[in-house]
Design a protein around this nucleic acid. Structure first.
Ligand code: FES
Ligand code: FES
Lengths: 140, 140
DNA sequence: ATATACCCGACTAAAATAGTCAAGTTTTTG
DNA sequence: CAAAAACTTGACTATTTTAGTCGGGTATAT
């Protein structure tokens, strides 16, 4: 069970923005250099972040991206959701009548996975971007 | 983020055994029929469960598998571990000196993923196989 | 003997992932 | 105005992972 790199990089890039935020927009080029993530890949990620209203963009020279909410208000779950990464450890379709093994009743483990999903998602719900920046070592 | 089917089926199959346990071993054929999982796939899964001492086998006619521990004592984390599914949402190698982005210091998000791993793994540590069987609907 | 059921490595098709490419548009600054 | 910086977008591809099968075993109860 692993989160994909898109999600991990998204959180990393936004954390970077939170640290290096100023009145100006932060360019992907800067994030790329500081965090070691390909610009081309960041572009793809920020496209989604923008569509989901996590960041807004400023075009042209000296352009870049700006966080829509403050880091204190931005939930990690919002970020993951923007990248279609809502945790789903359950095997069946939540709304579907069918169980994960093709039977008509929910399987023997269904409730367990359901609990797990809630457990994990509540973690993401309760974490704010600003929480990542506490106690961190000073960096370049 | 999703658990793979091997892990899910392993938990399901073992839960099945816990329900239908008797003095006799439970055959994969029976589990397959009850839970709708391919026998060939179950074989592969039980091979690992056996190697990790979760079940023991009885060969020959009327053979099958038997739970080594009682469902009350069998932790879900033990099952997942047997299938190499220890949760690892972190991007870097835990022991490696290198960070996930190739730098020499741990990345800005490292501690966060670490916390998440602990959060999820403690869930699995505290759940026993017997916990899955509580409050379940009566089944065939 | 023979049927049943475990044992085990190798194999493959399909899906997901990670990341690139090409061809734009917008805006600032010289 | 022209050039450069930086966002915009969809399509494309190589690699890896996943899910599951196959084939040819071995052990044991009846
Ligand atoms: S996980 Fe929902 S029916 Fe099995
Ligand atoms: S997750 Fe460990 S260094 Fe980034």
């Amino acid at each position: 069970m692993k989160l994909n790199t898109k999600s991990r990089y998204a959180v990393m890039a936004l954390a970077d923005m939170a640290v290096f935020s100023s009145d100006n927009a932060v360019s992907l080029r800067d994030i790329s250099l500081r965090q070691g993530i390909s610009i081309l890949y960041l572009e793809q990620i920020f496209l989604r972040l923008k569509k989901n209203n996590i960041v807004k963009s400023v075009r042209g020279i000296n352009g870049g991206y700006i966080l829509v909410k403050s880091p204190k208000e931005l939930k990690i779950s919002d970020i993951l959701l923007a990248l279609d990464q809502k945790v789903k450890t359950i095997g069946c379709k939540k709304d579907s009548k069918k169980s994960c093994n093709g039977k008509s009743t929910k399987c023997i483990t269904h409730n367990f996975w359901d609990e797990l999903d809630i457990h994990i998602n509540s973690f993401f719900e309760n974490k704010k971007l600003s929480d990542l920046l506490k106690n961190r070592e000073v960096r370049i």
